[in-house]
Design a protein around this nucleic acid. Structure first.
Lengths: 228, 228
DNA sequence: GTCTATAAAGTGATAGAC
DNA sequence: GTCTATCACTTTATAGAC
């Protein structure tokens, strides 16, 4: 794509233009609500070129998700690599030792990063596509899960296990799910949450408030004694 | 609708059939992906009758959401009424007194109820419609928010305030949002969460595990000392 | 690689008979 | 209330010129 420094050929420009438009309108209106005519028109490109470059409408849709997965992987990769390194270096069970604090710190850094990423304006379209894809999964979901979702969930689970000093992986996975939920709710239920908070959008101060709240929650969840 | 005991007229049967089919296919495929021909065919009803009973396709779509809001209101209403009564009867600020435990109990009962409702099989279609509507809100979203969403969020916020013995409503609303997220993630990101948990579905034992996890989390979040 | 033109099928809505 | 038939329009995909 545009990541290589090689000069873009004529066809590459067309491809990128189609991809960019497709992301925007597929996100806003969904696969079936959008016509290839519209995408071509918005891109300033002839409709027949969709067939030439992506085979058909579905090929363009899949290309959109491959693009998204690649971008997210690029952004979250360094953070994930760092966590993986810490997990491999550290003791297998931390059990409320000093290690637990380090792991918690890394987890909070990850949740902060994910929350920040979700709040970014150009992530809005991606999030809509990802959310929609989970309601009625197609082949595109595999691209997402294999691309980054599985790895992030796995790393979070390992961190939770280390922080708890536990080997109950099911509990850790459940906990991971609920942590993820706290982050995603501000995207998946964005309309409802904005109204609930009486916010018109999520800018820097609102994002900071969300991150603070989630950090506090995660800390409470992972450091409280089991009282049941 | 079918709640009255009066005998159904011929037209009512048609209306209900169309509504039931519409819920199923609008949920699965989205408004634009579904044709009125398909809905009519699945309902075993003539296509022209959609226009007769609901004016047009959009009228049918709105009717679907009015139906959903009504059903959810009916299910969650009693629980909400009970909480409202407790809120009015109890002291305005509980501040870690005995009252706080009562409020926490009611909040946990509410989260349990919501989690259980979301796990129900016939709620799947409703949840998909609600989630989709938040990605690209139409007039249907107002029906949902005014119908039940606003009330539930408001009650949860009041409970959080009482449990905390605080008057920081913004913090309470943020907390409410994150609690909701923990519940909704199992629907909004169902596909990803099922794979993450290595579950094939959410039956009784899985539901119980989710409810237990959320109860534990909510308790930890609301009873931990602020350490920041 | 890009274009025009068009085939083939599908769409929502409705007029009018019963 | 329900039906058939049809209008006016949009859809995806592609053949073929450049």
């Amino acid at each position: 794509m545009a990541t290589k420094s090689a000069p873009m050929q004529r066809g590459d420009v067309t491809k990128e233009a189609l991809l960019a438009s497709a992301i925007a309108v597929f996100a806003r209106d969904g696969f079936h609500a959008v016509s290839t005519r519209d995408i071509a028109h918005i891109s300033g490109v002839n409709q027949a070129l969709i067939g030439y470059h992506f085979r058909n409408k579905e090929g363009l849709y899949l290309a959109v998700f491959e693009h998204i997965a690649k971008q997210i992987k690029a952004r979250i990769g360094p953070l994930a690599d760092a966590i993986e390194a810490v997990l491999e270096a550290g003791p297998a069970v931390a059990a409320r030792s000093e290690g637990a604090d380090t792991y918690l710190l890394h987890l909070l850094r990850l949740t902060d990063g994910m929350t920040g990423m979700l709040a970014q304006e150009n992530f809005a379209a991606w999030a809509q596509l990802i959310t929609r894809e989970q309601q009625a999964p197609t082949a595109a979901f595999e691209v997402l899960y294999d691309g980054f979702m599985g790895r992030v969930l796995g790393l979070m689970t390992q961190l939770v296990l280390r922080i708890r000093g536990s080997d109950d992986e099911i509990a850790a996975r459940l906990t991971t799910a609920t942590i993820l939920g706290q982050i995603l709710v501000f995207r998946a239920c964005r309309t409802g949450m904005l109204r609930h908070m009486a916010w018109s959008g999520v800018s820097d101060s609102e994002l900071a408030a969300i991150q603070r709240q989630i950090r506090r929650n995660v800390t409470a969840i992972l450091t409280s004694k089991d009282t049941e």
